[in-house]
């Protein structure tokens, strides 16, 4: 992989509410290399969206960054003013939101919406910007682009609108593209098209992608590396093969187990619900739902144990003194695939 372009260190974010401070992000660290796709996986409330909003400087008013840093080109994004962030946002770091219905301006022609970042950030004059908008509109696969550039968002279908959102995000050739559940609102066939489009464009303009989703199927097809989040923390990260074929944290097991595939005959649900982050658990946040939990899981948060050069997991099960346990059948099956893959490499 290429050079490192983003480094998030020990990020902590609280949300102030009437009931007290919600500790939404607790000691989160990760990095992003040039040209790669990092998937952040987690359920709602796990903190995946908050993490990326902090990268964009788009946190809600009641959010407070308590600690940590986000280093982008040796500068801490968290220390930048709103005015400085406006220069970065949309130019160097762009974002695709989940819902293409609400992320476009209904009163503005789409050509103007695509051209806007160019005029704003790169001082391109209107005529030229519109010409470039037309180019990128063709690139994202909108037919009859010459005519449609003068239409309004409501004249497009959901999939087309998401293509337009992607066009807006990519028109300035950003270094980092953050995609927050970009296909969740779409049908499977349209989802497949959008994912293919994103992969293709990533190659063309050499952008790095942070892909946020709860859909492990999408992750398997898109990501180079995966970080799994739970209750405001990253609990495991590694290459896509390591996470899918050699998962270590029981929560990752649970996620893989509860996803139906076209061949599954038995679904193992994760019992219970995620913890309340007003008062997060002291130890492993997953302990209460974890059938493999040990006493220490309730008392002390496990550190990251190294599985390989690229793969780390925060579970006491990896401690040398931990008892040997057998993971669920589905995970055993996956680990067998991993062994085979490694044997093929060596």
């Amino acid at each position: 992989m290429g050079e490192r372009i983003l480094d998030v260190n020990n990020l902590e974010i609280n949300f102030h509410t009437y009931a007290g401070d919600v500790k939404a992000i607790r000691d989160v660290s990760f990095h992003l290399d040039k040209g790669e796709t990092l998937a952040i996986v987690g359920e709602s409330g796990s903190g995946k969206s908050v993490t990326t909003k902090s990268l964009m400087g788009l946190l809600a008013n009641n959010a407070r960054v308590v600690g940590g840093s986000i280093m982008y080109h040796d500068e801490d994004i968290l220390k930048k003013s709103e005015k400085q962030m406006q220069d970065i946002r949309g130019k160097d770091i762009a974002m695709i939101f989940q819902d293409p219905m609400t992320s476009l301006d209904p009163t503005m022609k789409i050509g103007r919406q695509i051209a806007e970042p160019l005029m704003k950030h790169k001082n391109v004059e209107k005529k030229k910007a519109l010409a470039q908008a037309l180019e990128i509109l063709k690139l994202v696969g909108i037919d009859h682009a010459e005519e449609r550039i003068n239409e309004y968002p409501h004249q497009f279908s959901g999939g087309q609108r998401q293509r337009i959102v992607i066009a807006i995000a990519l028109v300035c050739y950003p270094e980092i593209l953050i995609a927050d559940e970009p296909t969740t609102a779409l049908d499977v066939t349209i989802q497949a098209q959008i994912l293919d489009l994103m992969k293709e464009l990533q190659q063309k303009i050499e952008t790095s992608i942070i892909f946020i989703t709860h859909d492990l199927g999408v992750v398997a097809g898109m990501a180079d590396r995966v970080a799994v989040m739970y209750a405001g923390q990253i609990i495991e990260y590694g290459s896509v093969d390591e996470i899918f074929y050699n998962p270590q944290h029981p929560y990752t097991w649970g996620l893989l187990n509860s996803m139906p595939t076209l061949n599954s005959t038995d679904l193992q649900a994760i019992p219970g619900t995620p913890p309340d982050l007003l008062d997060p658990p002291k130890g492993d946040p997953f302990a209460a739902r974890n059938p493999y939990a040990m006493k220490i899981d309730e008392k002390e948060k496990p550190p990251f144990f190294k599985v390989s050069e690229t793969h780390f997991a925060s579970t006491w099960l990896l401690h040398p003194d931990a008892p040997k346990i057998t993971p669920p059948d589905e995970i055993v099956r996956r680990k067998k695939i991993f062994k085979k893959m490694q044997a093929n490499v060596n």
């Binding site: 989802q191 497949a192 199927g217 097809g221 896509v240 093969d241 076209l262």
Partner: peptide, 9 residues
């Protein structure tokens, strides 16, 4: 078009 949680696939 159904995504499967299986990178090899």
């Amino acid at each position: 078009a159904v995504p499967e949680p299986d990178p090899e696939f």
